[in-house]
Lab assay of single mutants.
Amino acid sequence: MEVRTIKVFTTVDNINLHTQVVDMSMTYGQQFGPTYLDGADVTKIKPHNSHEGKTFYVLPNDDTLRVEAFEYYHTTDPSFLGRYMSALNHTKKWKYPQVNGLTSIKWADNNCYLATALLTLQQIELKFNPPALQDAYYRARAGEAANFCALILAYCNKTVGELGDVRETMSYLFQHANLDSCKRVLNVVCKTCGQQQTTLKGVEAVMYMGTLSYEQFKKGVQIPCTCGKQATKYLVQQESPFVMMSAPPAQYELKHGTFTCASEYTGNYQCGHYKHITSKETLYCIDGALLTKSSEYKGPITDVFYKENSYTTTIK
């Protein structure tokens, strides 16, 4: 009895394709271990004539594949690729409408935090270190965002349907971005203890939790000093293409032309909904596939993004 075979390709990165001759009487799992086709788990399936010449994702289970996976995804987590594939199996079914010149995501599976993050990423200057993220990001900007969303979920250790947080998501993504040249110098002034300067680099240099107003941050924000008295913390120097200011959701007025974009969060910790506000020729609110415009805006804002380049204080 002759062994019926077909020729397929296996890959971990969709760049390096490895030619395989597979036995049609055995499952993919018996031949390769966990195997995925377009995100779908085909591990328990036997090869079919229609699979001839198709590319299958496999887990990096030998040295060659491990090197290829690390170079593309910059992670050695053995569960990463499987999590990416199972997320992709959902995100490829989502709709990605162009809204006001940006790629958004039609609401499904509690994905409003991903839509808000995706919209924000198209408006701030950011370059990702893992080629996987950078490639998928370019495709997302062009309207094909399924891979990018699935990668975000995998890097953030999230599953489809789980509630997510924009600030946490951005923080994970910033860790995989090139923020080497970003720098922030802060000064804390206390009447009792004097003053202390701190220099922050990388992710810490672009994120701040405690106030939404970048102007206020430049002037000074009140913080408790270690001595128990009130101290003032203010920005001395900022070198970065953008800054992200966050605070627990509270009524906040966004003035046209003073910011790049913002995240609105309605609801409580267990259950809520994100919308995205962007400042173009007027203010726009993007909620999944829905767009509304207004000249002014007041609502429960939790993150505001500002364009920056270089700032030095005039406070002496």
Rank of each mutant, 00 (worst) to 15 (best):
T266L: 06
Y155K: 02
D180P: 05
S104G: 12
H273T: 00
D13E: 05
Q20K: 14
C193H: 05
V3A: 15
K298M: 13
V236W: 10
V243A: 01
V236A: 08
E52L: 12
I152R: 09
C261E: 02
A177D: 01
V21I: 15
N14P: 14
D135Q: 09
Y234D: 08
M170F: 09
E308A: 06
T75N: 09
P131K: 12
V67G: 15
E168C: 07
E144F: 06
Y113R: 06
T198E: 15
L65A: 12
P241I: 01
K183T: 09
A136M: 07
A140P: 07
S279Q: 03
T278A: 10
E308T: 09
T198R: 11
N61K: 12
Q134F: 04
K201C: 09
L283N: 02
Q222A: 10
K316G: 15
D287H: 00
H176K: 10
H273G: 00
A262L: 02
Y284A: 05
L81C: 10
V304C: 06
H90P: 03
L290C: 12
G29S: 11
K158R: 06
V21A: 13
T292V: 09
L65D: 08
S86K: 14
C156W: 08
E253N: 10
T260G: 03
R4M: 14
R167P: 01
F9Y: 13
S86E: 03
T313R: 14
A247V: 06
Y72V: 07
S50P: 12
A150K: 08
Y214L: 09
G272S: 01
Q195P: 12
K93T: 13
K158F: 03
Y155E: 03
L114C: 02
D41F: 02
Q20M: 10
L173G: 02
S240Q: 03
L153S: 10
E215D: 14
L126E: 03
Q30H: 14
A142F: 10
K298S: 14
P248I: 07
N129V: 09
Y306S: 02
S295K: 14
T120A: 15
T103W: 12
T226W: 09
V206C: 08
K44R: 14
P34Q: 07
M1I: 03
T292N: 05
A250E: 10
N49T: 13
S295Y: 13
H74A: 06
D63C: 09
V189Q: 08
I286C: 01
P300M: 14
E281D: 15
Y36F: 12
C156H: 03
E68R: 09
L65Y: 09
T292I: 08
E308K: 03
P60H: 09
Y73M: 06
L186I: 15
S246M: 01
T43N: 07
H176C: 06
F259C: 01
L173I: 11
L126D: 03
V22T: 12
N16R: 14
S246A: 01
G288N: 07
K255P: 03
H51M: 07
K307G: 09
S294K: 10
S310E: 00
Y252H: 10
K92N: 11
I277C: 01
A146Q: 10
E264P: 01
Q98M: 15
N147K: 13
E264K: 00
E215N: 04
T258F: 01
T10E: 05
T43E: 12
H74P: 01
L133Y: 04
T159Q: 15
Q196D: 07
F148S: 00
H51F: 02
T313V: 11
N14S: 15
C271T: 13
P249Q: 04
A289K: 00
N187F: 03
L254R: 07
E168T: 07
L119N: 03
A136Y: 09
T199G: 00
G164S: 05
H90M: 11
N147R: 10
Q237M: 12
L173T: 01
F9M: 12
Y172A: 15
I223T: 13
Y269P: 11
N14V: 09
N100F: 06
E125G: 09
R141D: 05
T232R: 09
C149H: 02
K46V: 12
A40T: 13
T43W: 03
A132I: 11
T103P: 03
C193Q: 02
V160S: 02
T159M: 04
H256G: 08
S246C: 02
L173Y: 04
P224C: 08
E144Q: 11
G53I: 01
Y214P: 05
L102N: 09
T226P: 14
M85S: 01
H18P: 09
V203L: 07
L290D: 12
E162M: 05
K298N: 12
H18Q: 11
V58G: 06
I45N: 12
T292G: 06
H74L: 11
K219P: 02
V99G: 02
G202S: 02
L102H: 08
V3E: 15
F305V: 05
T35V: 13
G33A: 06
Y284Q: 12
T76P: 11
C227K: 01
Y274E: 03
K316S: 15
K275M: 02
F148E: 06
K219M: 08
E52Y: 09
W94G: 06
S181R: 13
D303A: 02
N16V: 08
F148P: 07
V160N: 05
I6Y: 08
D109A: 08
P130Q: 04
V304M: 05
S213G: 01
E162I: 05
G228H: 01
Q197Y: 08
F305S: 00
G202E: 07
Q216G: 06
V58C: 14
H74E: 09
F70Q: 11
P97T: 09
K218W: 08
A231L: 03
A145C: 06
D62G: 12
K307I: 11
T282N: 05
L254P: 02
Q230S: 11
A250W: 06
V12G: 09
Y265K: 06
N61T: 13
F174K: 07
T91V: 10
N111Y: 05
V42L: 14
L121G: 04
P224M: 15
C156D: 06
T64N: 13
A117G: 00
Y234H: 04
C271M: 13
Q123Y: 03
V243M: 01
T282A: 11
G228M: 03
A132P: 04
F148I: 06
K233H: 10
Q222Y: 07
C227I: 02
S294P: 07
M26C: 14
L59Y: 03
V304R: 07
T35M: 15
I15T: 12
D135N: 10
R139I: 09
G164I: 02
T258Q: 12
Y297T: 02
S86G: 12
Y36M: 08
L153K: 07
Y113I: 00
Q20P: 03
L235K: 03
G82E: 15
Q195A: 14
L133V: 03
